[in-house]
Deep mutational scan, measured.
Amino acid sequence: RADKQHVLDMLFSAFEKHQYYNLKDLVDITKQPVVYLKEILKEIGVQNVKGIHKNTWELKPEYR
């Protein structure tokens, strides 16, 4: 399990490339446990629960 700041850096870097990611792809990118990753994502992102981007994560507007 990596340092939180290191995980945040990896996530922000990923979100610079694409606006939406599913959790599986973010786990592959960060190599972090799902529960730990979700904890961090809830602080900086929102999970889309409907629409064409259903079940994906994106950054909260203040982090874009």
Rank of each mutant, 00 (worst) to 15 (best):
I52F: 15
S13H: 10
T30D: 00
L8Y: 07
E58M: 14
E39S: 13
E43W: 02
V27C: 12
K24Y: 10
H6A: 15
Y36L: 10
E62N: 12
V7K: 01
P61V: 05
G51L: 02
N22W: 07
Y21E: 01
H18L: 05
D25F: 02
H18R: 14
E39F: 03
R1T: 15
A14K: 03
G51M: 05
Y36M: 09
L41P: 00
H6V: 15
V7P: 01
K4I: 05
E62A: 13
K60I: 02
A14L: 13
D3T: 12
L59C: 02
M10A: 11
Y36W: 12
A2W: 03
V7H: 03
D28T: 12
L59D: 01
D28N: 10
R64P: 04
I44S: 00
Y21H: 06
F15N: 00
N48Q: 15
Q32L: 08
I29W: 15
M10V: 09
V34R: 13
P33D: 14
Q19S: 13
K24E: 12
Y20Q: 11
R64W: 08
L37T: 03
Q5M: 12
D25I: 03
N48S: 10
Y21K: 05
Q19R: 15
R1F: 15
V46T: 13
P33I: 00
K4D: 05
L41A: 00
N22A: 13
Y36T: 13
Q5T: 10
G51T: 06
L8H: 09
V46Y: 11
K60Q: 04
L11Y: 00
D9T: 10
V35H: 05
K38A: 12
E16F: 04
I52S: 12
D28C: 11
I29K: 05
Q5F: 09
E58K: 09
L26Q: 00
Y36A: 10
D28L: 09
N55R: 07
F15Y: 13
M10L: 12
V49P: 12
H6I: 15
A2I: 15
R1S: 11
D3Q: 12
L59M: 08
E16M: 10
L59G: 02
W57E: 02
K38G: 07
D9Q: 14
F12K: 11
Q32V: 12
A2H: 06
V49G: 14
S13Q: 15
I29N: 02
T56K: 14
I44Q: 01
S13G: 14
V35N: 08
V27S: 09
N48E: 10
Q19M: 09
K50E: 15
I52G: 14
K50M: 10
Y21P: 04
E62G: 09
V35T: 14
L8A: 07
W57K: 04
H53P: 10
L41Y: 01
I52T: 08
M10K: 08
N55F: 04
I44C: 08
G45K: 03
G45N: 02
F15D: 00
E16H: 09
L41R: 00
K24L: 09
K54R: 09
L8S: 04
I44H: 02
K42C: 08
G51V: 03
K38P: 00
L8Q: 14
Y63P: 04
S13M: 11
K38C: 10
E62M: 11
D9E: 12
E16Q: 12
K31E: 12
A2S: 15
L23M: 09
E58S: 11
Q5Y: 08
K31S: 11
V49N: 08
L41H: 01
A2K: 15
F12L: 13
F12V: 13
K38F: 06
W57G: 02
L11G: 00
I29F: 10
S13E: 15
G45P: 01
Q19C: 06
K60T: 05
A2M: 14
D3K: 09
